Simulated assay, not measured.
Amino acid sequence: MAAIPKRFLRHRILVEPYRGRSSTGDLYGPAVEVRCLLDEKTRNVRTPGGDVVVSSSTAYASPGTTAPPRSRVTLPGGRTTKVIQDAPRDSGGLGAPDHVEIQLE
């Protein structure tokens, strides 16, 4: 199936990819603007490590979008948060739009 239609990607977020830690704190790459559909709903999600945490928002973006865990994200309203995980969603030919789900703290 095709990617999520661009007309649904109504929001823009800034993603600063997490690059690791240094002696002065977390390191981030340059900010990248990502078009997405932002759903600011609180829900429980599982981290890549298996822990259950609370997610305040989920961004649905085009396939191929990357947002590594712990990346810094600035939402349209100016609030800054971090990525819990990004998960590619492939419909496997079932007719649903393919996309990347980015779960945010």
Rank of each mutant, 00 (worst) to 15 (best):
S57H: 09
G77L: 02
P5Y: 10
Q85P: 00
D86L: 02
E40I: 09
K6M: 05
R35Q: 15
A96T: 15
T24I: 15
G49P: 05
R35C: 12
R10G: 00
Y18Q: 07
T65D: 10
F8H: 11
G93A: 11
F8G: 01
P68Y: 06
R10T: 15
I102P: 03
R46A: 08
K82G: 01
T74V: 06
I102C: 00
T74F: 04
P63T: 02
P68I: 06
V52T: 13
P68G: 02
H11W: 01
P17Y: 06
G25L: 15
V83G: 04
S56P: 00
V53S: 02
L9K: 08
G29V: 09
R89N: 10
R70D: 13
R21F: 14
G93W: 10
S23R: 15
E33D: 14
K41L: 14
L14C: 07
V100R: 00
I84C: 07
V15F: 05
L104R: 06
V15S: 08
E33I: 12
L104D: 02
N44I: 13
P5D: 15
Y60Q: 00
F8I: 04
D98E: 07
K82L: 08
I13E: 07
R10F: 00
V54R: 05
S57K: 04
S91T: 14
V15Y: 03
S56A: 00
S91Y: 04
R72Q: 06
P63S: 05
T66R: 14
Q103A: 11
T80P: 07
N44A: 15
V34W: 09
P5A: 14
R19Y: 03
T58R: 04
D98F: 01
K6F: 01
A59K: 00
